[in-house]
């Protein structure tokens, strides 16, 4: 029997969080939301997640710092950074620091879904 896999969404833009969570749940992807990194870390320590979808620019810890913290808690976590903030270099830096994928908005939801499923597959293969 496969484990239950769960996605964690971290973004300070509540509207984006809600729309994305609604879209994913409709496609049977279980997910929880956090509006800042600290809340994300709390959820991470209390539950099991395979994939995190996170924005780069958040108040408090930014996306890259947050990713580093999350990787300390769970090194095999697949982290997708979806952001509007961006010099091109930020993307490469994100990858170098261990993101599974890094995307600059705008991106359509179907592409996002596929990206999540690919990350999930990679997680399962490592498992």
């Amino acid at each position: 029997m496969d484990k239950q896999y769960k996605l964690l969404l971290v973004d300070d833009e509540v509207e984006f969080l809600e729309t994305t969570a609604k879209f994913l749940r409709k496609r049977h992807i279980e997910c929880e939301t956090a509006d800042c990194c600290m809340q994300g870390l709390d959820l991470l320590s209390a539950d099991h997640f395979d994939v995190v979808l996170m924005d780069m620019s958040m108040p408090g810890l930014n996306g890259l710092q947050c990713m580093a913290e999350m990787k300390k808690v769970q090194p095999d976590l697949k982290i997708l950074i979806l952001t509007g903030h961006g010099s091109l270099n930020a993307g490469i830096n994100g990858m170098k620091q261990g993101a599974f994928n890094y995307c600059l908005k705008p991106i359509n939801f179907e592409d996002l879904l596929e990206m999540i499923l690919l990350a999930r597959q990679a997680y399962k293969e490592n498992d």
């Binding site: 961006g86 091109l88 993307g91 490469i92 990858m95 170098k96 994928n101 890094y102 995307c103 600059l104 908005k105 705008p106 991106i107």
Partner: peptide
């Protein structure tokens, strides 16, 4: 913005 987002996708994937 659209062009930049495609270029980031190209850079990230070529890096991968």
């Amino acid at each position: 913005a659209e062009a930049r987002s495609k270029i980031v996708a190209i850079l990230v994937n070529v890096y991968k």
